[in-house]
Design a protein around this nucleic acid. Sequence first.
DNA 1: CTGAAAGCGCTTACAG
DNA 2: CTGAAAGCGCTTACAG
Lengths: 345, 345
Amino acid sequence: MGNQNTTIYDIASEVGVSIATVSRVLRGESNVSPATREKVQQAMDRLNYRPSSIARGLTSKTTHSLGIVLPKLLNPHYAMIFTGAQEEALRQGYSLSLFSWSSLDTDAYNPATMLIERRLDGLIVCVEYSPPGRDELVQKALQTLRRFMPVVLIGCVPPWYDFPSVTHNNAAMMRSIVAYLTGLGHENIAFIGGIEEDKDPHRRDEGYRAGLQDARLPYIASYRVYGKGTAEAGKEALDGMLNSLRRDRWPTAVIALNDLVAMGCLRSALEHGISVPSQMSVIGCDDLFCAPFLSPPLTSINTHQQQTGARAVQLLISGEQLRETVSWELIERASCAPVHKETED
Amino acid sequence: MGNQNTTIYDIASEVGVSIATVSRVLRGESNVSPATREKVQQAMDRLNYRPSSIARGLTSKTTHSLGIVLPKLLNPHYAMIFTGAQEEALRQGYSLSLFSWSSLDTDAYNPATMLIERRLDGLIVCVEYSPPGRDELVQKALQTLRRFMPVVLIGCVPPWYDFPSVTHNNAAMMRSIVAYLTGLGHENIAFIGGIEEDKDPHRRDEGYRAGLQDARLPYIASYRVYGKGTAEAGKEALDGMLNSLRRDRWPTAVIALNDLVAMGCLRSALEHGISVPSQMSVIGCDDLFCAPFLSPPLTSINTHQQQTGARAVQLLISGEQLRETVSWELIERASCAPVHKETED
DNA sequence: CTGAAAGCGCTTACAG
DNA sequence: CTGAAAGCGCTTACAG
């Protein structure tokens, strides 16, 4: 008894009231007599009635569903953002659908068709680096989208994008990482990962340089290697640096763009016979679940990605036009140590 | 010009045709004169018209949106399933929303309200172990859900659940893992993780025992430790086993429930001064992205989780009432080796 | 090839 | 406190 075809009309005729009355008890309005309310309530239970959010959405102009555009969930970094966003959405009675960037820009003339047709109540877009030509496409897609729904940006948001956003102050973060390492006595500090033309790594680069300057250390170009944010890329990048440098010029500390890159660096060090942390310190970023189980356990930065996702949802729902920043936290494990002065110095 | 309020009526009056005609070109029907079609098309472009999938859903009884219920996305295992499902859904023009089990059973009298109200076109539910009392609740929730939408099950599906499903033959998989290790000469093979009362690990246990029997090895209770599927639990479980056993009784090979548990085992071994793989082999399951970057690189089973998610979506959309099984693949890395006969034997 | 009309399942003023 | 009616933006027969 009762299935998906039970409607407000069935309840109304069952009880002998109008559909308006049924609608009222459905929405919990107060202007219904207790007796009527009770009868309607019972009929709804008896017939296993469930209101259709679709029909509701048509009139109320709100779907209680949000979207999020993320590069790839297989990277735990994005899974953390998604989880934070999804839990907050559910808590507030919204559902969250995941979309990928490809659904945004496959058709330049008709960007984000699927997103728009679903009449989402809001959209979170994680912005990544875009090469010069593509950047305009992205901006155009975002402008189109915002004509249809509120948009909140996360990720590497260029300062000239005029949207509410939740991001990190990557420059300040990098600067404090460098300070941490110089505090351990390191002077030869490499920074691995990121894309040279990227705006946001530029801000990390800014922090990297500032941190070196704080400690009156020179910026050495060969200690800065760009590359994708994957473990494979991290290994490759450090391999390249080590192979092209004389042993006595090898860095004593390596800052990785993220924990994946750091994983690659740990492996590269291992293969080069470098002991971490006694001969080389490595620090990652994002504090992925596997960080404590690497060898050695990886020192990293907890960037509170779940909080980033949750805040983005809150901005979306509240409509606040803010550009927010999320804090971070150094998680010390075993992969960083005071610099070891070589005896043969 | 053009925003979310442009409707089929605006286009109709702009062009001077009926909304039925606009609807026809919208849906690409053939019975429209080329001239009319062209004019309508242009008007839609000019006014930036986007059809509302909400309104469409009201009449067509289909929302082109699917749901998936997963325990937690922070575990990469589930992120892989989700990714596979989401990509397939998107390819077929569906969106995918994630829900958690808590949204299924918070209210026993009204299970899955949110899921039902959204009028999804289908739902994938990842079934986990449920303690006796809760199992009935889960089944009840599933029965309620299926009255409203097609349901496909994945995960640890008890054989008495009568639903289409996509799963693994865990018994056969475990048996072949044991065969792999006995093939390397191992005789003392531990199996770590899973819940004792669980139906699915029971099937793994079945395979574990069968594998031992294949090699005429005895089942030794102290080599079987149950525990949650996390890295912490894995470490704890192996710690416990090693601490309670005489050194000469230590297992020479450990099968972990999954790669997370394996990570914990690797650490436990390290802390006990056991060298992997020369003194102990370790094999995981799921082949997570970090497996190649552990020390040593972890031998694991690629369980094709993305394919599982994708197939579940296909069953949902096609309506096929199948109980499918997904294949797996051994990925050999450095954490397993032929048993090393102690010289002091 | 095209249009008028009904209907999808709700909500929202407006009367009473 | 309750009901009749219009409307949300489409699709779907049914006529012509």
